[in-house]
């Protein structure tokens, strides 16, 4: 699985595909203060990205890939 849910936290791994966005959305709809860990993430499909952007999210770890981190930081409103 490229996406893993543990209690209040979601872990993204490798390339997170488009199909996962639905799962992610469903999960987020149920959580009040979700956290995300991108440390093992190399890419995530735009559908996942926009679901995250529509949520108030705490990021616990950014990706190793620096350019991806820059993108995500600009998208998720953190700098």
């Amino acid at each position: 699985m490229t996406i893993e849910f543990k209690k209040n936290q979601v872990f993204f791994k490798n390339e997170v595909g488009v199909e996962e966005a639905e799962l992610l959305l469903e999960w987020l709809q149920k959580k009040t203060a979700p956290k995300a860990d991108f440390s093992a993430c190399t890419h995530l499909h735009a559908a996942n990205l926009q679901v995250l952007m529509a949520t108030t999210l705490t990021i616990t770890a950014w990706p190793v890939d620096e350019t991806l981190t820059v993108w995500l930081q600009s998208a998720l409103g953190v700098s």
Partner: peptide
Amino acid sequence: DWPKLAEMDAYRCLL
């Protein structure tokens, strides 16, 4: 503006 999560369609691209 982002819709409420409950009403969001993950597969309508708004980016």
